[in-house]
Write a protein that binds this DNA or RNA. Structure first.
Lengths: 132, 132
DNA sequence: CTCTACTAAGTGATGTTATTACATATTGCA
DNA sequence: TGCAATATGTAATAACATCACTTAGTAGAG
């Protein structure tokens, strides 16, 4: 499997755009931002995203239909990841919780459910926006 | 706030369609099923869903862009709900886990994050499909 | 070296999900 | 009755995602 060392041009461009942005971006926002680099069609973005997600460099936020660069790309195998998304400013906080992971894996084991992927997304208001 | 006793015609139709179906339905599938009852436009479905979700009678599955009838509509105030979704047969298992809820609420408290809504969705293969 | 198989990329069309904007109707109640 | 609030109808459009087909690059087998 390819690693971060061997990203293609399109993958590099998409990851770059996500990395320099302080929050999630939709596929079409990415497309618009990358038009100046030659992107013409949604599929160019979606294909790059698919690989980047596979590599663990990008996460998809299901409740937002958007994408963020992974906050901890060095940790090759971080377990289950949770997100706290501020509905006011759009900031995303990425974290892991071993207890939550243990509980959910336990449920899956108890119910003979073969877990492929888990989504945990908390929506609300972040500290900064609460203060403002 | 309205309760299950006072659903409008459209809400009743949408909830009925979801209830008699053994799995999640998309808004447009609901629309198609309800055309014979006079539905003509997506908004009729989305507006009914919005209210039903507010009433706690329906849940939205973010990772599927679909909707399911609540498995425990009697429990007025069940806490945080998690879903196990079989990617093979589409079956959805709805459950609560007090420990998970405690952990996530704890994270929110520690980070002064005002929690509005939490999504937990596990994707994988259910027991029945594993056996098959 | 060159054939083949595989992976990546380009392009247009299309499919799917969700909302905006505006008009009309119904309901609860002073 | 008449007002306010809620619900509904309808068309258009926006936002998100994939399909089908084509072309190009790249790595290994022979």
């Amino acid at each position: 499997m390819a690693t971060a060392q061997e990203l293609t041009r399109n993958q590099t461009l998409v990851l770059g755009a996500l990395s320099k942005t302080d929050g999630p971006l939709s596929a079409y926002t990415l497309l618009d931002q990358l038009r100046e680099h030659g992107f013409r069609a949604p599929l160019q973005v979606y294909r790059a995203l698919e690989k980047l997600i596979e590599f663990g460099l990008v996460h998809r936020l299901e409740s937002l239909n958007s994408f963020v660069a992974c906050a901890h790309p060095r940790d090759h195998v971080h377990g289950l990841i949770a997100f706290a998304i501020c509905d006011t400013c759009g900031q995303v906080d990425e974290f892991s919780d071993a207890v939550v992971e243990k509980q959910l894996r336990g449920w899956a084991k108890d119910h003979t459910f073969k877990l492929a992927k888990t989504t945990i997304e908390m929506r609300g208001t972040c500290q900064i926006c609460l203060a403002a």
